[in-house]
Amino acid sequence: MFQDRKSEVSIFNKEFVRVFIISLSFIVALVGSSCTQSSSSTSDQQTEKFQQSMESADSGPVEQVHPGKSVYEKYCLTCHQADGSGVPGMYPPVGPNEWTKDQAKIIQVVLNGQSGEIEVNGEVYNNLMPPHNFLSDKEVADVVSYVRANFGNELPPVTEEDVAAAR
């Protein structure tokens, strides 16, 4: 009565290819961003830190992943999806939008959750996101920074201090 599992093998293969492609694109993104980052000169302290971490990632082992990635996968991916595109009509995307752009706002949403009708990129959402204030300042900073550096976003990271101040 239940659907067969014959596609497991092919799913495994697809999964492997998908992980490989994602890893590859992540490496390419790292190399690319570190190149452009190093050529730019900015006095912004946060961006400098971000640059340093990206450069060290570039020169270090290839497997190094953003510390916010595992937090995203554990707490955010179910609703906001692996590609950050969300669920139409239910959960908004975390790619470029007015919420991810606003550093204070996105920290608040992660800490305190969100309910009520909102509009994101012209689409209306009316659902509930639970508070994630049980995460440490570092975990929140990591996941917010990870989102702001991925899914099409190119925004500077946030710090543990930013999160502590917002609590």
Partner: peptide
């Protein structure tokens, strides 16, 4: 009898990784 897929192809892709696909 068991259930069966009657009409398919709505997604327009072979694999839907996230609903927006």
């Amino acid at each position: 009898g068991d259930w069966e897929v009657f009409a398919d192809g709505f997604a327009g892709v072979d694999v839907v990784n996230s609903p927006r696909d």
